[in-house]
Design a protein around this nucleic acid. Structure first.
Lengths: 353, 353
DNA sequence: GTTGCTTATGTTATCGGTATCACCCCCGTC
DNA sequence: GACGGGGGTGATACCGATAACATAAGCAAC
């Protein structure tokens, strides 16, 4: 426990006797002004004379006073919080989005409350409720699947909502995302163009991860359009499907369908696992088997061989979502602008496929 | 902007006329009780009769009411916030720590305020100040370098502080960490044991990353003790030193000291970059050059060859730090326990070195 | 001098909960 | 029947800031 610089020297009982933290009133009396003047001096925009402000800042510094925003927001009805919920914080795609959000919020006085569901949709509702208790001024969600109660809570909260990383059929409010199915289909078309015929797909079980199942759908749809079979599907447990599962999956794939010529993975992480596992087994990529991923993770840009993938501008998604949210909160939001903003997807051809 | 289910139909002006969010008083009048009884019913531990509670919960549900914790914490003087600051959220070592913190906080009613400095020590002070405005009940920091003003603010706040990922010479309060120098030295000793003699080191410039410079120090110290030269040092810009820099660095290293037989990198990310770059250039690892990393990232456990590294239990650091913090906050903290908790470090030998 | 405006500051009420204490009722016990 | 105690509920006073309005001083214009 940290103590103030000068703890009571004669504390007899072992009980902790914390000195009270200074409040605005303490600063006010020390500077010889009223609380209100202190409040004005400590926020930018308040009119306070030069000398008074200096005196107040000096007192603030001496007391080590830090504004209490919980108290302030009660009265001003502005908490300065923005909530964001992502599936995972350990997945660099989503942490890039989180970084984009934070960066866009920088300097706006808005602070991020970040939560993650670990791909458990049922956790979203509880997470949102606990965040709404903090009265955020806006909220950014990943995906468009929400429980009825979640939708009701968000409606009651009356705050702007941005759904990201997807294009929900029934958006709550604004959207910044892309079609995972289309993005995956674009990858399939590109690979078909290069001559691949026997496509395999590696992903997680579909019920927990919307984006994953959309990608699988896009895979199947594209192959259907090309008149190619889309039955080589390997499912590997619940998300997150990471490096290790990718390795295991490609082994199953090749055991069952040895003549597969290209394996597409739900993300670069599993693609990387597949790539390394193939090398470990003495197979050459892409000569013996081609591999492609999704998401343009840093790992795939520097692996050997480098991974063919789809870039989905994770950072941009976060930055734009937060920018839109900020505009909606500040009321500078252009109402005529489309409520749905599509982000760019781009197939990146590299050596692995 | 989300609207309540039934917006005013006759809103003439285009101005947004948000219906007021329900408050506890609304719930109270709907349930025919006082605010106080609602407050008791909505928090666990309050004594309320079965029927009254049911009536209140029903009213809460119907109104879509969500407790306002900002208001509550003002009166109860417990915000339920815990702050944590890490260098980067995109580095899986630190996001593992963040996950450990969140997991340990789960079910305690404590909510995490997460911030990151991007390895800019000067950002820590500002970040801490903005977090202290939310009156967290405790705070977790990475490392032990803090400005004088930061130390003063923390002392004034009077909250428990846990420094992690390091063992500071002058701890503020409690510590959950390890010696980065010792951990790196252990790796060097292990590699020397295996017969390596000409060691190279790849890291970032030292002034922004305490842990990085400690590792370099440990590298130099260990080689000194072994009577081996420790002059093959390649610095590559400001942290974060990631995959790409690792590749560039190993090239510089080999250009300058072609007979280097093992390269140790400040983290597994740069080690991975080095590994892939070597392969790209047709060098075999570890036959032509051995490579080792630090941090036991997932990437190194599945690369081909797999990376020799040092495991530092990132998740555990977070979990234990948060557990200690919780105990200190709840007062169940065992005062006789050491204020410094060392976490385990473990050299993991794999194929790359 | 009076009016009117601007700048600087203070006063008061209030934000939405919770702490605290008071109160009532019902029951068992002596 | 008086008393004590516990369960259940309400009234009131805050918590620490800010909104909104009031006020005072200073100055320019007439």
């Amino acid at each position: 426990m940290v103590r103030p610089a000068k703890p009571k020297p004669d504390a007899v009982t072992p009980r902790i006797v914390d000195a009270q933290q200074p409040t605005m009133a303490d600063v006010a009396s020390r500077a010889g002004v009223s609380k209100m003047t202190v409040s004005r001096a400590l926020r930018n925009g308040g009119v306070v004379s030069r000398e008074t402000r200096d005196r107040i800042l000096k007192a603030t510094e001496e007391l080590g006073y830090v504004l209490d925003q919980s108290a302030g927001s009660l009265s001003s009805k502005r908490t300065g919080f923005v909530a964001a919920i992502v599936p995972s914080i350990n997945n660099s795609n989503f942490s890039d989005t989180a970084r984009g959000i934070t960066d866009a919020l920088e300097g706006t006085g808005l602070q991020l409350l970040l939560g993650y569901t670990d791909y458990a949709v049922e956790r979203e509702e509880g997470l949102i409720e606990s965040m709404l208790r903090r009265r955020p001024e806006g909220i950014i969600l990943t995906g468009g699947s929400h429980t009825a109660r979640t939708r009701k809570m968000l409606a009651t909260a009356g705050i702007p909502v941005i759904e990201t990383w997807d294009v929900p059929a029934k958006p709550i409010d604004q959207v910044v995302g892309f079609s995972n199915a289309d993005a995956m289909a674009a990858l399939v078309f590109k690979l078909a163009e290069k001559g691949y015929k026997r496509f395999g797909y590696v992903g997680g079980t579909t019920d927990r991860d919307d984006r994953g199942s959309q990608r699988r759908l896009g895979f199947q749809r594209a192959l259907g359009q090309l008149g190619l079979p889309a039955d080589r599907l390997v499912s590997f447990g619940v998300p997150p499907i990471s490096i290790e599962q990718g390795g295991q999956a490609v082994v199953s794939m090749l055991a069952r369908w040895p003549d597969t010529d290209v394996v597409i993975c739900v993300s670069d992480l599993s693609a990387f696992g597949a790539l390394m596992e193939c090398q470990r087994r003495g197979m050459r990529v892409p000569q013996d088997i081609a591999i492609a991923g999704f998401g343009n993770y840093e790992i795939g840009a520097w692996s050997y061989p480098r991974l063919t993938t789809v870039d989905v501008e994770c950072y941009e998604i976060g930055r734009r979502a937060a920018t839109r949210l900020r505009e909606a909160i500040q009321g500078t939001h252009d109402k005529s602008a489309a409520a749905i903003e599509l982000t760019r997807i781009r197939v990146i051809e590299r050596e692995s496929a």
